[in-house]
């Protein structure tokens, strides 16, 4: 069962990079704000159907939860806006690796301080070395991207 779940999650990662590629392509003709709007609109339509059939929670409780929990939606919008802006300029893989690094760094920070009621996991030497490897990865992806761009350009001319 666990192996099945891990494969399922791998598929989740695949859909995320496919999304950034698809949105990047659409935004070249339609524009950044338009692409983000379309993604959110079709996503809510799809989820509305899913909730009707499989929703077991209580959507109305949204009126009672602390307001800071609702503020995350602004982050969701910013995330998509930034992705749609970056993909046509630096490509799918550079965008995805950079996103992952931002994600892990903030993840480590949240764990360290235990923000938002999360488990406190201090920044130890292992995690510091991990941060170092992320910086190395970012350096390689920047260089590798520059090199394959130069190769593509020299083939054209």
């Amino acid at each position: 069962m666990d192996i099945l779940m891990i494969l399922f999650t791998l598929f989740g990662g695949i859909t995320l990079s496919a999304q950034s590629a698809v949105n990047g392509t659409f935004s070249r003709k339609a524009g950044t704000f338009e692409t983000t709007l379309l993604t959110f609109l079709t996503g809510s339509m799809f989820l509305a159907i899913l909730i009707l059939f499989f929703g077991q929670g209580n959507l109305l409780a949204i009126l009672e939860v602390p307001k800071w929990q609702l503020s995350a939606v602004f982050l969701g919008v910013l995330f998509l806006l930034f992705i749609v802006t970056a993909v046509p300029r630096i490509g799918v893989i550079a965008t995805n690796i950079t996103v992952i690094i931002g994600q892990l760094v903030i993840g480590v920070v949240i764990d360290n301080f235990g923000w938002f009621n999360s488990l406190v996991i201090p920044l130890d030497w292992k995690r510091s070395v991990a941060l170092l490897f992320m910086i190395i990865a970012l350096y390689f992806i920047y260089k590798g991207n520059k090199r394959s761009n130069e190769e593509t350009n020299s083939q054209h001319f």
Binding site: W68, Q69, S71, A72, L75, G76, L78, F79, F82, I83, T85, A86, R89, I90, A94, T95, T98, V99, I100, I101, G102, Q103, L104, V105, I106, G107, I110, W115, F116, S118, L138, Y142
Partner: peptide, 19 residues
Amino acid sequence: SYILALLAGAALSLEGAIY
């Protein structure tokens, strides 16, 4: 663009923790 992508990742983590 790299800075925007970094910020997007940061937003995704914060979003995940809050949601």
